[in-house]
Design a protein around this nucleic acid. Structure first.
Lengths: 228, 228
DNA sequence: GATCGCATTATGTGCAGACATAATATCCTT
DNA sequence: AAGGATATTATGTCTGCACATAATGCGATC
């Protein structure tokens, strides 16, 4: 029972796997495949487009479709709200606002946001707890110029959650790295001095202006998991 | 000039952003939107499907399409071959095979691969260098039962690259974490005793059987970067 | 021989109509 | 009132056709 675009995608993948179509090879045109599979070209197109998005195929107009030479695997991972992430583990979420003030950001932060170092930003330092244990230390700079007024009380409502419900669907970039805990972090989070922290850094933009830069320092044991 | 599915996607996003359609809200049906935008339903479908894949919308047959309550952001990142990654930085890649032997894997490895602890696997320990400096320590267990013979000389050809060209398009999962360097790792990579390593762990499967489990310990300073 | 322009071609996108599928809502029965 | 069969509805997918767009490669021109 063959016919759906998912069947076609599976068949194409199979041919690639068994090296019918080796890496770098040009595969038949959509029209040829449509005839072979006895379906419309749009159906073949749908299947091949999915595979191209997954990095398995490379497509160019006129040039045709070829099997990717070096299969740069693409992994997609979910970036949930912290509360949601903790509750998904069956733990209870709480947080404490440690610091809040307004002033010019450090130079690296300003440059990542593309703002002058003289810009006045809101700084928030929040510790998130899972079942009472330190889970992640959030240090955030907010650009008040682009935020809808009035700002909430960040001691009562995590900036994390206020943003996702008030700045819908912004873009940005995310970076992961590992860093040794600073003395300050070790103290706050109750860690040994040289603990390895998993760091997530995120810059968020509206179409025009930077909104926020956030650095999340995750306690040891934290993992980001993905299904390919 | 409105009409393409990308324009429709943009317009829907705009309405979500300005809270015309707040989170949790049911938006008009594809047919209604098609009439409003003066296009075919298939075009609206394409736009809404993309937004649903991005996690912005939630769609269910008959129930309709609603704006996602908690926008679980999805980030996609590229997982390149190590050599490629180093060369993309303009550095030269080299590697040294430190260990190779065959035997039963440690229990955690066996369980992640779904194999009995008595299985005989090939163990490889490889240090990858960027411009002569330790870049990443690769520890890998290979399942010889599912590998095409003959196996190459892993001292001459990195397992990393041999696999991508000989096991086309397998599936698997990836996990990222941070760990303090062990004494062994610190020595091999020339690090201070408590350096924070960025760890990538990857399990790879064919349709039926596990192929390999690999742990990559990246030298301090390593970052995984993403554009959302 | 080098360059520009044009025809060719494969993919990208669009449209109108149709049927499939899943999930809800409703009605009927007990 | 509870339960199950059925109608309804919104999305999911397919078809066949059309035109748009980009990139290649050929040929004409200088």
């Amino acid at each position: 029972m063959i016919g759906g675009w998912e069947d076609i995608r599976a068949e194409v993948l199979r041919r690639i796997r068994v090296r019918d179509w080796p890496p770098g090879d040009l595969i038949p045109t959509e029209e040829a495949l449509a005839i072979e599979f006895g379906c419309a070209r749009a159906t073949v197109n749908r299947a091949l487009r999915e595979l191209a998005e997954a990095g398995v195929l490379e497509r160019r107009r006129k040039a045709g479709t070829r099997v990717a030479m070096l299969p740069i695997r693409k992994a997609t991972l979910d970036i949930p709200v912290i509360r949601q992430e903790i509750e998904a583990r069956g733990q209870t979420h709480a947080f404490r606002l440690l610091q809040q003030h307004e002033g010019p950001p450090p130079v690296p932060v300003a440059s990542r946001l593309g703002l002058p170092a003289t810009a006045r930003l809101i700084y928030l330092e929040t510790l998130h707890l899972a079942d009472g244990q330190p889970f992640v230390l959030e240090t955030r700079w907010l650009n008040p110029a682009v935020l809808p007024a009035p700002l909430p009380d960040f001691a009562a409502l995590s900036a994390n959650e206020w943003l996702v419900t008030h700045i819908a669907y912004a873009t940005g970039d995310i970076a992961f790295s590992a860093q040794t805990a600073t003395a300050h972090e070790a103290t706050i989070m109750g860690l040994s001095p040289h603990a390895a922290l998993f760091i997530t850094e995120r810059t968020t933009w509206t179409a025009e202006a930077p909104i926020t830069f956030v650095r999340l320092a995750h306690a040891p044991g934290y993992r980001v998991q993905t299904m390919v």
